[in-house]
Design a protein around this nucleic acid. Sequence first.
DNA 1: CTTTGCCTAAACACAC
DNA 2: CGTGTGTTTAGGCAAA
Length: 507
Amino acid sequence: MAMMSPQMITPQQMQQILSPPQLQALLQQQQALMLQQVKCAHILTHTCASQLGSKQLAFQQQLIQMQQLQQQHILNLQRQGLVPLQPTLYLTTRYFLRLIKETNFIFCVAFHSHEEHASSHPLYGHGECKWPGCEALCEDMGQFIKHLNNEHALDDRSTAQCRVQMQVVQQLEIQLAKESERLQAMMTHLHMRPSEPKPFNQPLNLASSGSLLKRECDAYPEGLPHPPTSAATPITPLRQGPSVISSSSLHTHSHSHTHGVGPIRRRNSDKYCTPIASELAQNCEFYKNADVRPPFTYASLIRHAILESPDRQLTLNEIYNWFTRKFAYFRRNTATWKNAVRHNLSLHKCFVRVENVKGAVWTVDEVEYQKRRPPKMTGSPTLVKNMISGLGFGSLNASYQAALAESSLSLLNNPHLMSPPTAASLNMLHVGHDDVSSTVEQVNSNGSCSPTLSPQQYSHAVHVKEEPTELEEDSRPVSLLANVTHSLPLPSDERDLEEDLPMEELE
DNA sequence: CTTTGCCTAAACACAC
DNA sequence: CGTGTGTTTAGGCAAA
């Protein structure tokens, strides 16, 4: 923790000043924030790959804002008074403290990266002014201060920018509240599970999700419905965050990916790419409400819709309905996508038309579907760009949620992520994101958007690319994660998780 | 440069 | 006749 700046609270201090409930609340906040940081970092990395210029700065600004929120939260809790820890809760809080420690570490690294020194300015880093949209180079702090006073003085423009930034923060706060609530619900749900062998340690599993996920996996083998909890990957930031970086995936993606705004074009192997099921499960609300094009091919979506149905067969109209029900994006341009759906149904052999009593229904020929997939592994560099471009950068909340969606995927357990990361030097993340895995999914009884598969049943590609130029600042969030990776002695061995991942080798 | 996969658009046929 | 469904073709883009 040498990097910890003076304003940071150490875990020991935390333990002294906060009650267990406070710690728990803090933990949840921290987790949400950390997750957001991870996600922001992730999308930021993609953003820089997209050469979005000043947009990178906006994302970075968000990152900093979240960090500041996080710190503010710590201070607020501090002001609430001192409550000694109860001995009975100590075991649990130890894990909380560990998490806090880790997240603090992330926080510190982030600040360290951004500011070089604790005394530096949040709007200044790496010799650049971090004012949104401003990339002015400033050799030192003095020059920066001058620049700040000259260029970003109190005028209409700065005020407007500040207002925008306030909206950014507001959106993030709203999102944070939502995510925290979700996390709490997830934790509550997991805690209630009767099969849980460590009833009181439930939150501990946040730090040892491997074992938790293992149980999930054991309990819900392939092809069987899975409870929503299994896809609730955000509860495992400690494991997942670092897992975003992987040296093993370093060599898998070295081509250019700086183009590709627009329609989704991917060719990902199911074996490596992210499952549609878990993606939809985690972000179904997002896709339902945000006018964001889902990062899947029509074929993938159709297949998913069909497999999600009770009988694994749908009429065309039911497929239409599924699209509109699940995706706000498909509530418009109906002519276009409906045509595409029909086109795909007809074109792909994997979709089989079956005459039914009521008429014709469409089913999925799984063998054909798998056949049509080339075994090559590719990333999905266009995904985030698609999402971002689809959203428009102004729609911050949607962008952010896209980041959430994207990052949630990256955070899923991936065997490729289990090797020791050397990611401090890495700066590019690529998430394969295309299709449903070869695992057969099944519909939820309630027909809701709950996940139908546990995430560990999928593996998806997270491709890390080295991009030494232009990415100094953008690599920060990633190296931040990489640093954390090294600092995470997790209760469960990484090996456990890896072993628990059913590799999909059906191709 | 070619191939492949995907998307969009459009034309057309057929059934209700 | 209009609409929905299904098939087919074509052009374009991006990645491999």
